[in-house]
Design a protein around this nucleic acid. Sequence first.
DNA 1: TTGAAAGCGATACCAC
DNA 2: GTGGTATCGCTTTCAA
Lengths: 352, 352
Amino acid sequence: MEDQKQKLELVKKPTVNDIARVAGVSLATVDRVLNRRPGVRAVTVQKVQKAIDELGYVRDTAAANLARNRVYNFVFILPDAGNEFVEAICDQIAEQSRDQFIERTRVTIKKVAPFEPQDIVNILDGVDHLSVDGVAVFGPETPSVRDAVKRVRDKGIPVVALVSDLPSSDRDHFVGIDNVSAGRTAAQLMGRFVHRPGKVLVLTGSRLARDHLERRQGFDLVVAEEFPHLEVVASVEGRDDPDLIYKMMPGIFETYPDLVGIYSSAAGNAGLVQFLSESRISKDLVIIAHELTPLSRDALRRGTFDALISQDSGHLVRSAVRLLRATSDKVPFNKSQERIRIDIYLKENLPP
Amino acid sequence: MEDQKQKLELVKKPTVNDIARVAGVSLATVDRVLNRRPGVRAVTVQKVQKAIDELGYVRDTAAANLARNRVYNFVFILPDAGNEFVEAICDQIAEQSRDQFIERTRVTIKKVAPFEPQDIVNILDGVDHLSVDGVAVFGPETPSVRDAVKRVRDKGIPVVALVSDLPSSDRDHFVGIDNVSAGRTAAQLMGRFVHRPGKVLVLTGSRLARDHLERRQGFDLVVAEEFPHLEVVASVEGRDDPDLIYKMMPGIFETYPDLVGIYSSAAGNAGLVQFLSESRISKDLVIIAHELTPLSRDALRRGTFDALISQDSGHLVRSAVRLLRATSDKVPFNKSQERIRIDIYLKENLPP
DNA sequence: TTGAAAGCGATACCAC
DNA sequence: GTGGTATCGCTTTCAA
């Protein structure tokens, strides 16, 4: 008896038909119980539930989606910053759309002015729970955004925060790296790579962006703890804007002639790279930046940048989609598969 | 007309029924053409193929697997080395088996004596093409293994090489990191982390293991090119054996009293860690090892190791399974998703 | 409150 | 050579 059951579990998984047979009810009733639909007597629910538990039933999502002809419609809200990282995410969405089409999911991208919470709020308030099955938001954690996310979730629509967390909004999941750890990692590399004492500059984006703040925080902690030969000077806010950064650089080097390292913790690296290529700054200057893009990749290969902290844009998109699907279907997900790693790139381990 | 087609493609993908209707044949015939089965006139094939192309048909694998009640049976051949990395792979297979069960795939692990090609050959020759749909091999690239892999593939069974490549065997795919680049990466870190001139030791596993050879090769190249203050001394072969490594260490430090760094490029780190904890070796010694495991993680956190080069075991297993499924079904796969990254871990970016 | 039956997209067996 | 049809696991009317 026990043996047979064991074997059955191993060889073939139970189906709705098995449950119906064991519980002595019809398929329709099993389905009602499985999907928590009303119109079933408590006693019957018990009977069916018992059969489900005994058999160790697990729903075949593929078959279910086939039957209901389900299509997942997801909306990704991204900053229209024109920077390479956001572009990489868009490219990934496009690139994966074919695979995801096959997996019955469609992704719509909505771009909003960067650092403009109101635009995000408008889009969030506009999502219709009849046509949208989930939303991914890459944006600043302001009170208005937080409340708008809550309203979306109250409509029963899953929301994930992308790249920059929105913990206070009660979003379903965060898809991105731990930015405090990312900052710590940058600091450890900086401390190890810089051999002489001196000042280190942190180039940040905006104080509205939670990810930027967290990176700075992690960076400061590790430098203070472990590298007394370095001194972190006041952050410079580049607003992810290459032109602005380019214009600010000369002044910075005047103020701190003894700069030994720069941690570019946000976007807008183009401005930094251009300035460095034009000026005759010591090659000893250690530069650590964020995100692997064509520009940063090139800078790393030429030795302008010494290391990159990154997160895989393909993984970000896949993970967001999988989490939205799982949340929408109320099924569990594989936690370790969804953890986004803090990638470190040197010129030696760049992907081809 | 054009518009309508566009719209149809966007909203709903064509099915076998659509093909049958457009081509004016039955479902059965469409299926014969789709699966290249014989017994269809050339003219009919043309007609059907035309409809397929026009409609831009893409098979719904989920529905297909449901209909044929397909179950993928894969065999993973792993060295019974008892080391943590192999254990991590086994754990991942076990951990993912639930998910993969749902996705209709079963994985069987076969452990073989490490560095014993004949055991691998025996298992490979024993796989039955009726019950096995794919094989993943983690083993040395010897002529006998190579030929056995070829025989398996001649039976029509897909084979992927895991961790250590078997290029000469014509395996379908390699799932693992580029080991030359991994060695280069280790060298770059070593060169940056070691500040004083001195000798560097490479601890390797076996000259039979292609991955170990490649790492050494990459390491040597970068040290020679970029770090003249370092000298790499002759490799020491630890055969992935902690006890052996532990016993060899004192002799090594006698021979090279001015050692400034160790690159542990293979397994058996336990022996190294134990020796270091017992002896009073300078904390200045930079140690870079491979694979994130409980032991190496701990050593990194305590500062015994300075950095780790790693590959994600969860990703390895998922990737191997996906590639075997795709090869078996003759469907394309997402190349960038299957690329295994060369992970660098410092104590700051360890996963929780 | 429950059940019978059609159907999702694809496959496979059995006729003709 | 070709077509009809049952089937896979699940959902969803429509009746009872």
